[in-house]
Every structure is written in structure tokens, then in C-alpha cells.
Design a protein around this nucleic acid. Structure first.
Lengths: 338, 338
DNA sequence: ATGAAAGCGCTAACAA
DNA sequence: TTGTTAGCGCTTTCAT
């Protein structure tokens, strides 16, 4: 490797001490203008840049945040990542991205790997397996080390850290209300995420509204694998005279709508469809899908802001109270509803 | 911050020297079994983990690779990232992900930021702006420092580094051939990426085939913004009696198909549609979209393999010849073609 | 079998 | 105004 220029070399060439060079580079007022200029000149000439590793080691500060995502092929998480990245880079931080692939083991490994002075803090959403097993000690350990964590979307009440969540229950309440208001009586809720906290909340919201509305029934259809179970959805729609579908995740709504299309139902006249996650699918489906937008980018940006704020107002003594920010959703009306 | 355990502390507590502890942890044969055991025991007790920063600084090796992506909301890049991540984590590397947002400036900044001992190498796809401006010195500088780069998908011939590319020209040739073979005569090529190397190659391939086939015509429709120009696509399809569409990017095909749907055309009977990028859109469109799969995950994994191989067989003396790997595409037949 | 010491590149308190 | 020194946590060569 072509040797990177170091302070040492600059100092040698300038006949100055290392510390004088270091201070000059920071325009320290105790150094003479003349020296400062000489130093800058040579530094520029060699395109000197401080070794980030050494600086981090010295300052115990990496300016890096670790991001753990359950998956990346999911548009929602991709958007959140984008939001985090934008905010972080704006403020001079970079991010290390790890994909846990919904696995507890990978989550644990990544966390350990990064917890040894590699990052200043974490932003993460729990993996599916972690939520099912409810094993959370790894997070508690990190917090004991006073490394801040911000959880988003898939969070746990048992971990006392900052959180940014989507108001999932309220979101599905409003979605169901909208369906009822536009005349739907027999609503199906299709979901592949019954296991997850967010899936449960969304279902609860739907049930709440239906239970307090006369003449409307709700049917649940849990699905493990959308592609493998298309037939199941097909017969479900036909046999139950469904007139509206709420998909609790991005793909569920799209798949349901396509099946309805295929069966010859008119959308939205005969069946209305609402989905969660305002991703590519919603925008490019036919007809365009009415969705609950979780404002994923904003969510990511908020999580980053929370973390950075915590990192920069380092208040180790005062017991910091963890806070939870709730990001409001909005129902984006398109062509799949009346 | 709760102090992390260091070698120093372990050594103090064990009444050993730092170096003995360090060696013991590595099971160095020159240390007695007994000592090794004592050390391991205490290290486990404290859950000692070496400080990654210090190790990297010492070894001039970070086990981290920098990944620069033009965007992340594009399914193709998300898949590539997934592929890279899988391969890298399997081999004990982690990745720092940066999103250049198609901007030359951000690309440059990230590259500089990471080029100072933060990463062992780079995997990247050129930003759109970089390709348009054709400014490539930042890459050349990095290579001079003998930091390896692997470019993928959007590459430049002017930079002498390893590359993994998709056989775009061949891919669109095969797509067009398929359309012709199934009876299409009037083919539209719709693209939002005419500026990019890959967009040009895909167009060339299409033109090649059409020019050597009698009775078939091809019309190009460049689009800046799909959502804003739906009307344009609409009238284009109607006025030109198009019977097949090749979308050069993921969304173009989906949008074209939905417009055709809306206009009442039967797909694929009256209009066949093929798209690029086998993403979510293709799988969940109606009808399901026939697409060129670029095997993005594989591409990412290949890029990672190439980089890691280069990193681990450190051959600084021998002039390493840059190689280019071409990933074959496949045409995935679904319901939007005959 | 164990330890001392130098050094990776940088910062910062303290001396001169 | 400039320089000396110690130290961040670790590895490694060279004593002992």
C-alpha cells in the first residue's frame, strides 16, 4: 500500500514536532500564522487526511452508527434505511448496515461484533425470531455499557431505550373505518405477520372498530407464504363474499388485489383493497393501491435524530429517561377504494 | 460509559504482563496451558472482547468493506446489497453502506471519508451524475493507494479495477427476440435510464435485433419521470399501435402495463410486456410480469467474493490484472407475454 | 514460559 | 510559540 501521509512525516519534513503539526491543522491560536500556513500547505500538497481509526481510538468516538435491519428486500426497511442514512450523513456520521435476516443468532452476532468500540450507538428493528423467542438480554447488556439504542417499528417494551414507532393500531382503525364508510360490510384482513408486534396491533385496531359497528363482519386470513397460498386466498375471497380487503403488509394487499382481478371482480366497485406500507407496489399496481403510509423515511430520520441527540448531549450522570416517539400514519387514497 | 475490559485490566488482575495475556488469548504455544486457562477463564467472566479499533489500527486491516450505492429504494440495488452483505458476513467482514443518491459530490465525499484507513476495499456502482460528468479521478486516486475497488453494474472502462457486470446488451437482445418470436411487430422501448451505460447497452441490443429482422419496427420512448408523464405513454401506446413493450428499468414496464390495462388492452394478447429487474413489482403486478432477471444477489455475492479474494491474497508486487466478470441474465417468463 | 518495549497515528496536558 | 510526554488498546519482536 502506498504509504498514507501521517503527522509524523509532515512533521519531519517541516522540522516541527508532531504536536505542533497537529495543532496547526486545527488552526490552534497558540500556533503562529506562519507555521499554520506552512503546515496547511504541505498537508494539502500531500492530501493529508487524519487516520480515522487513530482518531476514534484516541477519542473513544467513532462517528459511526450501527443499523440492524431484519431485511432489506422489504421496501419499508429500505426506506427507513434511506431516512437514517440521509440524516446521519448530513450530520457527519456514517452507518454500518447489518441485515439480520430475521434471525436471532445473526442479530446477536452483529450486536456483539459492533459493540466493541466500533459504533457509538445503534438503530435497529427486532428480528422476527427475536420477537418470537422474546430474548432480549443482548440489548440490555449493550445499554448497561451506556451505548444508546434506538429501536424502531418492531420494538420491545421490556427494553428501556428510545423508540420510534408507527401508530399501527390507529392506522388500521382508520383504514377499516374508511372501508366501512364507503359501504363495505364483509371485510377480510390478510396478513403474513401475525407473529409480530406490529401485526398484532394492526389486527387489534381492525377488530376494535368492527366490534363497535353493527352489520359489519371481519374475517382473518393468516398466510405463511403468499406465493404458495394463492389458491387459499382465491377460495377465501370467493366463498366468503368478501367486499373489502385490508392487507396488513405490503405484499398481502397487492397479492389479494391481483387475485381479485383475476377472478374478475371489479376493483373498487365490488371489492375495495387497502394495504400497509406505501411502497413501489402500491404505486405501480393496477389499480393503484390505497395504502397506509408509515412515512418510513421520516421514521428513519427521526430515529437518527434521536440517537444523535443522545450521543451529542452526553449526559452520563443524569438518569436519561427513554422516550418514545410515535409517527402518525396517513391513509393515501388511490384507486383501489371507493 | 461502563469501562470495557481491556488487556491491561485482565493482566493486572491476573498478575501477568499484557503480552502474556494477549498471547494466551490466542492460545500461543509458548504460554503454559495453565496460564492460558486462567486467562481464558477471567476473559470469559468479564466477557472480554478485543477493541476492534485498536486491532485495526495495529494491523492496518479493518475487516470492513465500503459499499457505495446510487440508491437503495431501487429493488435491484437492495438485492445487490443483500448479496454483498451475505457473502461478506459469512467471511467475517462487515460493510459500511453509503448511498450516493446519484450525486457525484456525495460519492466523492463518501469515498474520501472512507479512504482513510476505514475500509479495506470498496464495492460500488457509479452514480448517475458521475457517469454523465465522467469524472473518475477519485477512483483512480484510491487505486493508487492500492485500495482495491470492485465496480458492479454501472462501471467505467476508464478505471482499471475489477468489475462485475450484467450482460445487458445480450439480455435485451433475447427479450426482443422473444417478443418477435411470439408475434410482435411494433415494439416500444420505454426507458428512464437513457443516460446510463446500462440503459445505452440495453437499447443497443434491442436495436441490433430489430435492424436484422424484417417487418418489425422499434420505437423509442424516453421518459424523465414516469409519474408525471403517464399521459405521454398513454397516447404513445394508442397512436402507434404498439403490440409489445420492453421497459428498460423496473418501473417503466410496470407503468406501461398498467396504462395498457387502463386503456383496456388485453395483456398479453394485444400487448406483450417485458421488463428489466426481477423485483417485487414484477412478481406482484397484474398480470405477472415477464422480466429479465439480472440475478442481483448473485451479482452482489460475486462482487464481494472478488474483493475478498483480492484482499486476502495480498499480492502487492505482482502486477494484478483487473478482471471483469459477466453475470448472465435470464428471461423469466410470466403472464405478460405470450 | 513470561515480560519489556516499541509502535500503529493521533490528541492533549504539561513543560520549556 | 513550540516541543515533550503519556496514553488510547493492541500486537509482536526481542529479551530474560
Amino acid at each position: 500500500m502506498r504509504k498514507k501521509v501521517t503527522l509524523k512525516q509532515l512533521s519531519k519534513e517541516l522540522n516541527l514536532s508532531i504536536s505542533t503539526v497537529s495543532k496547526s491543522l486545527k488552526n490552534d491560536p497558540e500556533i503562529s500564522k506562519k507555521t499554520i500556513n506552512r503546515v496547511h500547505e504541505l498537508a494539502n500538497f500531500y492530501n493529508y487526511k487524519p487516520n480515522a481509526l487513530a482518531v476514534s481510538l484516541k477519542n473513544s468516538k467513532t462517528n459511526t452508527i450501527g443499523v440492524l435491519l431484519p431485511e432489506i428486500l422489504n421496501h419499508f426497511y429500505a426506506k427507513v434505511l434511506f431516512g437514517i442514512e440521509q440524516e446521519a450523513s448530513k450530520r457527519g456520521y456514517r452507518i454500518v448496515t447489518c441485515i439480520t435476516d430475521e434471525s436471532y443468532k445473526k442479530e446477536l452476532e452483529y450486536l456483539e461484533m459492533l459493540n466493541h468500540s466500533s459504533v457509538d450507538g445503534f438503530i435497529l428493528a427486532l428480528s422476527q425470531e427475536t420477537q418470537i423467542l422474546n430474548k432480549l438480554d443482548h440489548f440490555k447488556d449493550i445499554l448497561k455499557d451506556e451505548i444508546p439504542i434506538v429501536m424502531f417499528d418492531r420494538v420491545s417494551e421490556e427494553v428501556d431505550c428510545d423508540k420510534v414507532i408507527v401508530d399501527d393500531k390507529d392506522a388500521s382503525k382508520r383504514a377499516i373505518k374508511y372501508l366501512i364508510d364507503t359501504g363495505s360490510k364483509k371485510i377480510a384482513v390478510i396478513s403474513t405477520i401475525f407473529d409480530l408486534s406490529v401485526g398484532k396491533l394492526r389486527l387489534e385496531g381492525a377488530l376494535d372498530i368492527v366490534s363497535q359497528t353493527k352489520g359489519v363482519t371481519l374475517m382473518e386470513l393468516p398466510i405463511k407464504n403468499l406465493e404458495a397460498e394463492e389458491k387459499k386466498i382465491e377460495s377465501f375471497l370467493k366463498n366468503n363474499h368478501i367486499d373489502a380487503v385490508l392487507g396488513l403488509d405490503e405484499a398481502a394487499a397487492a397479492v389479494a388485489m391481483n387475485i381479485a382481478n383475476k377472478l374478475g371482480y371489479k376493483i373498487p366497485q365490488e371489492i375495495s383493497v387497502i394495504g400497509f406500507t406505501d411502497g413501489l407496489l402500491a404505486k405501480h399496481s393496477y389499480p393503484k393501491l390505497t395504502t397506509v403510509s408509515q412515512h418510513a423515511e421520516k421514521l428513519g430520520a427521526s430515529a437518527a435524530q434521536m440517537l444523535l441527540e443522545r450521543l451529542e448531549n452526553n449526559v452520563p450522570k443524569i438518569k436519561y429517561k427513554a422516550k418514545t416517539e410515535i409517527v402518525k400514519t396517513s391513509l393515501i387514497l388511490r384507486d383501489s377504494t371507493k
